[in-house]
Design a protein around this nucleic acid. Structure first.
Lengths: 339, 339
DNA sequence: TTGTACGCGTTATCAG
DNA sequence: CTGATAACGCGTACAA
């Protein structure tokens, strides 16, 4: 299949220098005389030369690649952060390799191994909860990695994110302040997902502080999909008395809840309020706009990139980066209906 | 940074055979005696050996990698198809490398070069419109590639997709059948984007066939973003008389239009109808649900994977695959308001 | 069935 | 500033 590509040697021959000089011309242009550089540049262009990746990886023991394993590409949750990550990395000549785990820890471990096999220079992982073996593996290999979408004061690994529990607590607090007392939650599947679990904890904490609780029948765990979110909401709507507000573990779940509420002939927020988490585009497209926790997607991606590049250079273990979240008030949250 | 990893030679030493045998044990297990194989397998496990990607690429001239360049990850348009592509490929031990062009042809060309430099065994590109140089490059390199999201009878390259013009024409036809005559369109930027252009052509064709036309002030080109879509819609809503329907080049633009319409105190579809294109999740989350062109995302991704793998094996240039689209009627399209 | 030996394209060291 | 040349880890003729 693949035809023979021009190699460094071809370029060297055509420009009348040695391969070493060509290599330098490409990697450290200022260490070669301008005129030779020009000849080489010409030859490169004429031949359409591109460095051979494998050769480079072999000789330099670097791949200029970082890997990221995210749960899914099917919704936009991770898209914006990834985009930012990629932009930062490619500005430094580093390629981003993305793969997905479908929220399955074993699958994630497999993807990590695959990425390591490809010799990635660094790795970005979502959240903190995973088999200890994965961390062991990463450390044995000496591959720098950073965790994103989570942050807590005493996290043992470099992480860039925010305090999911605190953000969820703040949202619940806001809901309480409006007078809601029959509060329900649709959470993501908490098993193997520390962000989903932390968000539940945060809500619990706020309720506890008010002498309330989140009874089992007011908490539904659900896959992060529209359909599953709608199904979960249906279960909550069937209860008597009906909750006056549904706190959702993310915006996709909230969108599903909207659909169920609409199908039930109810309206947001007159009959029932809804809140989300993540602030993806979806949140302000919904009608009414979704009140949600704003997450600094792009800044997370950018900070992760910077941190990874720094770790590759210094080899030092950096401090985590704690970013702020905030609550975006839109139409979906109002005081509970009377009665 | 990266610690020294075990190599083939380490495994060979530990199991008391030559590197050649270890290599065979890994790549063609049945060509080595069961007992030696067992010893080798043990050593591999003990050392935690993983083949070095660069070395393998260098020696075998294959990377078991295919690349895809998509316009953006920021919305979900390409996500589902990519996911399907990735699933199919990884089932065959092939890794998918994704990069983005931000709808910029030059950027796309750069990404293609970068991917080629990494020695991808195949490539997936979106649509047909790009600099001839890119095609030349691909063919000179002998790297199999397939175009997705587009199909037409006489496309000179292998493509998997659908007829964008025909799908848009059908949608416009449906709108005409409902009695609409003041028809406006928000299209994607057509320059460098054959899908966007084809969708405009399709709408034009339907109108022409009815003795109507799409005057310049009823056609707005817009970036594929919510904000830009809303802005475009605002311009159209300001006209007198107002259009009775806005055909949008994709669902994201339509969602933007919804927002503008809502802000203008109007309602869909009572005051104005809206249609989309792509049928991403967004379309049935909007309220009312968006009437849109359903695109077979997953089947496109799967077919592309199959085609690419086949091309890698046979080396033959396969026929294109034409998939069907369909119109999904939801609440956003109704007969025009009287008057 | 197994081993030897070479080459893949690049970088890096060291002389010049 | 430039050139020889030795790695880098693996696959694969070819030989045994």
């Amino acid at each position: 299949m693949a035809k023979d590509l021009p190699t460094l040697e071809d370029v060297a021959r055509m420009s009348g220098v040695s391969t070493a000089t060509v290599s330098r011309a490409l990697n450290a242009p200022k260490r070669v005389r301008p005129e030779t550089l020009a000849r080489i540049t010409d030859a490169v262009a004429q031949l359409g030369y591109t460095p051979h990746f494998g050769g480079r990886a072999l000789a330099s023991n670097r791949t200029f690649t970082v890997g990221a394993v995210i749960p899914t590409m099917e919704n936009a949750i991770f898209a914006r952060g990834l985009q930012a990550l990629q932009e930062q990395l490619s500005a430094q000549g580093v390629t981003l390799l993305v793969s997905t785990s479908n929220y399955d820890p074993d699958e994630e471990a497999a993807q990590v191994r695959a990425l390591l096999g490809r010799g990635v220079d660094g790795m970005v992982l979502i959240g903190e909860a995973r088999d200890a073996q994965v961390y062991t593996l990463l450390e044995r290999r000496g591959v720098p990695f950073v965790l994103v979408w989570t942050w807590r004061p005493d996290c043992p690994w470099p992480c860039v994110g925010f305090d999911n529990a605190e953000a969820a607590r703040a949202m619940a607090q806001q809901v309480l302040d409006l007078g809601h007392r029959r509060i329900a939650m649709i959470a993501g599947i908490t098993r193997g997902n520390d962000r989903a679990a932390a968000r539940v904890d945060g809500v619990r904490g706020a309720l506890d502080a008010h002498g309330l609780s989140l009874p089992a029948d007011r908490l539904v765990e659900s896959d992060y999909s529209l359909e599953a979110g709608a199904e979960a909401a249906r279960r909550l709507l069937a209860q008597t008395p009906r909750p006056t507000v549904i706190l959702c573990g993310n915006d996709v779940l909230a969108a599903g809840a909207y659909a169920a509420i609409r199908d039930a002939g109810l309206s947001v927020p007159a009959d029932i309020s809804v809140t989300g988490f993540d602030d993806i585009d979806l949140a302000h497209v919904l009608s009414p706009g979704l009140t949600t926790v704003h997450v600094p997607h792009r800044r997370m991606g950018e900070a992760a990139a910077r941190m990874l590049l720094a770790m590759g250079a210094d080899g030092a273990a950096p401090d985590g980066v704690a970013l702020q979240t905030g609550i975006v008030r839109r139409g979906s949250l109002a005081a509970p209906p009377p009665g």
